Amino acid sequence: MQKNDVNTMLLFLAVVEAGSFTLAAERLNMPKANLSRKISQLEASLGITLLERTTRSQHLTEAGQTYLAHCKEIKAQVELANAAVEKALNIVSGELKVGMSVGMGHEILKPVLSQFMQTYPQINLSLNLLNRRVDVIEEGFDLVIRIGALEDSRLVAKRLGKITRRLYASPHYLKKHAVVEAPKAISELDVLLMSSIQKAQTMILKNGHQECEVEIQPRMRIDDYVVLKQMVIDGVGVAILPDYMSQKALEAGQLVQILPDWQLPEVEVYALYPKNRLNIPKVKMFVDFIQQVFTARLDIH
Rank of each mutant, 00 (worst) to 15 (best):
L113S: 00
L272C: 02
M285Y: 09
E79Q: 12
E188F: 08
V136A: 07
L160K: 00
L13E: 10
S195H: 08
H59I: 14
P265Y: 05
I91C: 03
L272N: 00
Q122M: 12
F286I: 04
E181H: 12
S36N: 09
T119Y: 04
G19Y: 05
V267G: 04
E26L: 12
V267W: 04
I258G: 00
V293H: 07
H172W: 10
Y168H: 13
K87L: 14
R56N: 14
L150G: 05
K184F: 10
T49I: 15
K158Q: 13
E138D: 14
Q58E: 12
V269F: 01
V144H: 05
L143P: 00
I137Y: 08
L109A: 02
Q41R: 15
T61R: 01
G237F: 02
I204A: 06
E213V: 10
S246N: 06
M194P: 00
V6P: 06
D5P: 01
I147T: 11
K32D: 06
D190Y: 07
D223Y: 04
L113T: 02
Y244G: 00
Q58C: 08
P111G: 11
L255H: 02
S57C: 07
A25M: 01
L96G: 03
T54Y: 12
E215P: 05
G235P: 09
A185H: 15
A14Q: 06
G161Q: 08
L28W: 01
S93M: 13
P171H: 10
N4H: 11
E62R: 09
C71R: 03
F116Q: 02
V256T: 13
E17N: 10
Q122V: 07
I137K: 12
